[in-house]
């Protein structure tokens, strides 16, 4: 027990050192490149972040009403988070049930088979035409993506539960509903948590890239404009900010699910 704690601490220390080394290497490469327009160093990106955080007049001339970070972050991550919640919830239920009911498997199989292998981004243009440039189109797109990713994993997790675990519960008098709650759900929980974390990270990525294609608000919209201006530092600042907020959300998920995963050791 105590050994694993020191092991975790050591991993954390080396992880931090890795990030630090990465930071320094980036600074060094940027320094030797010597052109902030091509490869801005971390300090330039930080400056850009501070400068743009509460909005930028230049962008407002270009017709962007809200150019500050907080509004756009809230917009992008809010949409993605709601979509993630809806899509994942549906995916968990559909995936677990489809592992036990053949008719449901038959219904979900075509969708999971195709979009388990085809990037959902390919449907983004169609969603934009159908549901407009507002948040609805991205919400549906990301929710659909999360549904597929989580559904595939939940299904295979439920298929991989050893049959004796359920049979044992049945001989103890648990009916199928009770077995679902006492056996299927907890047994499939660890892989589901892993895929929920993956779906959140990639779902946000999908949300931002869909905003790149067509949106009036959102971090993706800002990235598109900044990229058109050739402002690498601003693009990096925006992307890294999204990444950091996503990291915080990821930590929240991990903390929230940790008690339920302790049995694995």
């Amino acid at each position: 027990m105590s050994q694993s704690v020191t092991e975790v601490a050591r991993a954390g220390r080396w992880g931090a050192i890795g990030v630090l080394v990465f930071w320094c290497a980036w600074e060094a490469v940027a320094f030797f490149t010597g052109k902030d327009a091509v490869l801005p160093g971390p300090r330039v990106v930080l400056w850009e972040f501070q400068h743009g955080f509460f909005g930028d007049r230049g962008l407002e001339y270009l017709g962007i009403r809200h150019s500050d970070y907080p509004v756009n972050l809230a917009w992008t991550l809010g949409t993605a988070a709601v979509a993630w919640l809806i899509g994942s919830a549906l995916g968990i239920v559909a995936g677990l049930k489809a592992a036990r009911r053949q008719w449901l498997r038959d219904v979900t199989e075509p969708v999971l088979f195709v979009f388990g292998a085809v990037p959902v981004l390919v449907a983004a243009p169609l969603f934009l035409v159908w549901f407009g440039a507002g948040p609805l189109s991205k919400l549906l797109l990301v929710a659909f993506y999360c549904f597929v990713v989580v559904g595939v994993v939940a299904q295979s997790a439920a298929l991989n539960i050893p049959p004796t675990a359920e049979e044992y519960a049945a001989t103890l008098g648990l009916d199928s509903k009770a077995r679902f709650r006492a056996v299927v759900l907890p047994a499939a929980f660890p892989p589901i948590v892993a895929v929920l974390r993956l779906a959140l990270a990639t779902g946000i990525s999908l949300e931002v890239s869909a905003e790149l294609l067509g949106s009036r608000v959102g971090i993706g919209r800002l990235i598109a404009v900044r990229a058109q201006q050739g402002n690498v530092a601003a693009v990096l600042a925006l992307a890294i900010t999204v990444g950091l907020v996503a990291l915080v959300l990821d930590l929240v998920i991990r903390a929230a699910t940790r008690p339920a995963l302790r049995w694995q050791g």
Binding site: S209, V235, A239, G243
Partner: peptide, 10 residues
């Protein structure tokens, strides 16, 4: 955790 797909313009 970076929004990789949106970084293609870079």
């Amino acid at each position: 955790m970076l929004p990789v797909l949106a970084m293609s313009p870079l």
